[in-house]
């Protein structure tokens, strides 16, 4: 029986492991894929206090090694389900079952899909969710970005320096992104805004060739030939497996209070998976520390 099991080895989960281990608790971290979470996709982190320029990979690797050095076990095994038995919780992984006194869910979030035909089939063949990863494949080509938040505007900005033309397709005519960044983007000659519109169709057999964009107000459908579509329409939490375990809000986030407690005693939630107003590296880590400290108080 472990004192604490953490599900997810992103910044929230690994920080929870540090605080749990340093409180003298036995800690197991279970991760489905690889450590680091979404931050590994960021080439340069520029808003982390006192570390003005650090790559996401280096950051995640330092954090991972810090956790290992504390004697925490990290297993790469997907968690399928978990059950509350009061005194202990039972965690069902793909290969094993584990018992723990407390459970910290730090499952994070994944890219939201558009949910249209061929989206999965053309991913890696013109459809991408990561401009900084895949942008350089589209040098001097025509691309589009869809979304209206900070990531979409940053992606469009980044791509406008590489690609011959960038369309920014957004379902509204106002942006969640910072005004300054939108104004900056509007100044670029090779960026065209298509507003009040959704991407409604992807064309191409092995490689993306064009997209169809539908204006929500006029219902006009326009076909745009291009090589790349970058989808930046936000994140979805990965909490489906825990729907029967803890209370989840209508957007899929696990409901938590200031101490990262869920409605079930002994089960905590940290990072992007929980209800909160700001999902950032620094807030994920803060959650991890709080959740592990709360968990460590349980005898």
């Amino acid at each position: 029986m472990y004192d604490i099991i953490v599900v997810g080895a992103g910044p929230a989960g690994l920080t929870a492991a540090i605080y749990g281990a340093r409180a003298g608790k036995s800690v197991l971290v279970l991760e489905a894929k690889s450590y680091g979470g979404q931050i590994i996709n960021t080439p340069k982190i520029e808003n982390y206090p006192a570390m003005p320029h650090v790559s996401g990979f280096d950051f995640a690797t330092d954090l991972y090694n810090q956790v290992l050095a504390l004697g925490v076990t990290i297993k790469f095994e997907k968690v399928l389900d978990a059950f509350d038995h009061g005194e202990y919780k039972l965690v069902k992984g793909e290969n094993n079952e584990y018992k723990t006194k407390t459970l910290i869910l730090a499952t994070g979030a994944d890219n939201r899909k558009l949910g249209i035909d061929k989206e999965e089939e053309l991913t890696g063949h013109g459809v991408s969710y990561c401009a900084s990863c895949d942008g350089s494949f589209f040098k001097n080509k025509i691309v589009a970005v869809t979304g209206g938040g900070n990531v979409a505007i940053e992606d469009a900005n980044y791509l406008s320096n590489i690609c011959s033309k960038v369309y920014l397709i957004h379902r509204r005519d106002t942006f969640r992104a910072d005004d300054a960044d939108v104004a900056e983007l509007k100044k670029k000659d090779n960026v065209e805004f298509i507003l009040n519109s959704n991407v409604t169709k992807l064309n191409g057999d092995n490689v993306l060739e064009s997209i169809e964009v539908t204006n929500k107000i006029t219902n006009e459908v326009k076909t745009i030939p291009l090589s790349g579509l970058f989808i930046a329409v936000g994140q979805v939490p990965e909490n489906e497996n825990f729907r029967d375990l803890v209370n989840i809000d209508d957007r899929g986030y696990i409901i938590a209070n200031e101490s990262c407690e869920t409605n079930v005693p002994g089960i905590f939630v940290a990072g992007d998976a929980r209800t909160k107003t700001l999902r950032q590296l620094v807030t994920a880590e803060a959650d991890g520390a709080i959740a592990a400290t709360s968990a460590s108080r349980i005898k």
Binding site: K33, F76, E94, G124, H125, S128, F137
Partner: peptide
Amino acid sequence: YNVMSIPTLILFVDGKEIKRSVGLISHD
């Protein structure tokens, strides 16, 4: 090979592409 996203893994058998996988995947 039309690689437009990395990491991309391609399995070749006797020089022919048999399968490909796009994006980070786990050991399993």
